[in-house]
Design a binder for these strands. Structure first.
Length: 578
DNA sequence: GCCGTTTTCGGCCCGACTGTTTTCAGTCG
């Protein structure tokens, strides 16, 4: 069983957690966490890189020692040091780390003084009133532990973008209704367009004497106030989403926005650059530390902050410390793809199958978005659940599209299909029908649990068919619900390149598949990516921005995206017989 | 454990808030 990047990332993170509770050197702990981020952000598969003998220590955060450990992990399929440490330190302690307000020091105390090893034992001790007797702990801490344990159970994990997006929109509208508020913006992982968010970080500037904090506390959707200060407050919304609000002076807006957008590792890297220049960067600005008096040099805008360390402004989606700082330094930051670059949507459904609206309604909505084309890609016959189209149905839809196109100008409905990739790698409609179409999105909707090698071969066999254009939602994962099927994505991307096939970023907020990392792998391999919505309704067409977010996180530029092409060029790229 | 235009030792980002203290440690982001 090959070891994935995510597994190595998790092993290092868990190891760091345990080291921290054990009371190890905090910088050693940090080294493991940094390495975990680096491995998680690699665009190639770690096991293959090891097999090829690539020098992992060339990546930031991985030195000789950790490179050796990674090689061992890949070869043995396990991390021996972690397993040894687990014998010494109970695993349940790592779960306890997730309780808000409990960090390594307190957990160490709980473990040593009360012998607590699991969340269950922690809860029992809290309910029996044994925790408040410990030095440094008290009644309130004990109560917050009980609440924290409950919250972990009820809101496991992170929130999908759609929910966060809705919450963010309503909250900003509410905050801006307070007249003294000058600027209110969501920073954090939301601004970086991560596929899920843990909380919303709101940054506010306001006039003197503003009562914006009170205003925030009075927000209808607040379920519980976690912390309340003059410049920093946290609440829990009824949806379970936590919101942290920070109030900063107007002149610190840029520095604060930079600071609260993160990511943490990106900020650390930027600050380290500042330290080298004898500067200090915090959320209030950039300061020189010469002499006894510190002097404020910049901070009104993010650009000033970056410029102070000799860098150009960096797009938030890139700020993951995955090479963007080096790229910025060398003046080779990507010019990320934008909404205006998108000329059409290549994956939509109508009420002929499982969509909610007619072909005409969908096309009209796409035209209103300013698109030049939209492909109708209803399901193929095997998907009986969704009333998949049989050959005769496809022919009828082709005639319907011809009629519509003959009556419209400046907009083209493309004849398409989302055709199932069957278990044997054949496509679910005869070639003579598929040939009639402009675009074929090919997707796996069955047999998710095939072994990775078999699944990969199945898809590559499908790509061998010259009618194959775009691999739809390439891993089939559903965020927070189901992991993707096992495939060798690196192999699929290479197969796509050889066969002039493309991969999809499915913009559905439950899918976002390809993810950011594999989008970058596709780009690195010069395989074009189609950013599609898979819309089943008119409003779903707006999901494009979620897909764009992932594309931008994957460093994609206009030239890397299939549906930024003008119609003629697109049709040429979709014709593999050319 | 990583890193290096102050390079093989000695650093490693920084401030706000809470709870439990009576001046501050721990945690969080």
């Amino acid at each position: 069983m090959p070891v994935s990047n995510n597994e190595v990332e998790k092993m290092f993170d868990e190891f760091a957690d345990l080291l921290e509770i054990k009371g190890e050197n905090q910088f050693r702990v940090r080294a493991y966490r940094n390495a975990a981020r680096t491995v998680g952000g690699l665009s190639g598969d770690i096991d293959k890189m090891v097999a090829r003998g690539e020098r992992l220590s060339s990546f930031t955060g991985i030195g000789k020692d950790l490179e050796n450990k990674i090689v061992q992990i890949v070869k043995a399929g396990r991390f021996e040091l972690l397993e040894d440490l687990k014998k010494e330190m109970p695993e349940g302690l790592v779960q306890i780390m997730r309780v808000f307000g409990l960090g390594p020091r307190r957990i160490k105390t709980l473990h040593e003084k009360l012998g607590i090893k699991t969340p269950e034992e922690l809860e029992a001790a809290a309910r029996n009133g044994r925790i408040k007797e410990l030095p440094g702990f008290g009644r309130k801490t004990e109560q917050s532990i009980i609440e924290g344990l409950g919250r972990i159970r009820s809101t496991e994990g992170r929130f999908k973008l759609q929910l966060a997006d809705r919450a963010a929109g309503l909250l900003l509208e509410y905050l801006k209704a307070e007249k003294t508020v000058r600027q209110a913006v969501i920073a954090g992982s939301y601004r970086r367009c991560r596929e899920t968010v843990k909380d919303l970080d709101v940054l506010v500037t306001c006039d003197k004497g503003s009562r914006v904090m009170d205003h925030f506390m009075n927000y209808d959707n607040v379920e519980k106030v976690i912390a309340r200060g003059d410049t920093k407050s946290s609440v829990l919304l009824r949806s379970g989403l936590q919101v942290d609000l920070r109030l900063v002076p107007q002149e610190s807006y840029g520095a604060a926005l930079h600071y609260f957008t993160g990511s943490k590792s990106h900020n650390i890297a930027v600050r380290a650059m500042a330290v080298k220049k004898k500067l200090k960067i915090n959320e209030y600005g950039v300061f020189s530390e010469d002499g006894r008096r510190e002097k404020r040099l910049a901070g009104n805008t993010e650009e000033e902050v970056y410029n102070s360390v000799g860098l150009p402004w960096i797009d938030p989606e890139l700020r993951e410390d995955r090479g963007e700082i080096e790229a910025a330094r060398q003046g080779r930051l990507p010019r990320l793809v934008k909404q205006e670059d998108i000329r059409g949507d290549l994956h939509t459904h109508t009420n002929r199958t499982d969509g909610k609206y007619s072909l005409e309604e969908m096309a009209a909505a796409a035209q209103r978005l300013g698109y030049e084309y939209m492909a109708v890609t209803d399901h193929s016959q095997r998907l009986t659940m969704a009333h998949g189209l049989k050959p005769a149905d496809v022919k009828e839809q082709i005639r319907q599209i011809d009629r519509i196109n003959s009556q419209s100008r400046g907009f083209r409905v493309l004849k398409g299909i989302e055709v199932d990739i069957l278990e044997d790698g054949t496509l679910d409609l005869p070639d003579e029908i598929l040939r009639e179409l402009d675009v074929r999105v090919c997707s796996v909707h069955s047999k998710f649990n095939l072994p990775g090698k078999v699944q990969t071969e199945r898809i590559i066999r499908a790509m061998d068919n010259p009618n194959f254009n775009i691999l739809g939602h390439p891993t089939g994962r559903l965020i927070n619900e189901r992991p993707g099927y096992e495939v060798d994505m690196e192999k699929l991307i290479k197969a796509a390149r050889e066969r002039k096939c493309y991969l999809e970023i499915n913009s559905y907020p439950d899918r976002l598949d390809l993810n950011d990392i594999y989008s970058k792998t596709a780009r690195d391999n010069k395989v074009l990516v189609a950013i599609n919505t898979d819309a089943h309704s008119l409003s779903d067409l707006d999901f494009m921005r979620f897909g764009l977010g992932q594309a931008r996180r994957g460093w994609l530029e206009k030239k890397d995206v299939l549906n930024t092409c003008p119609l003629e060029e697109l049709l040429r790229l979709l014709d593999r017989r050319r």
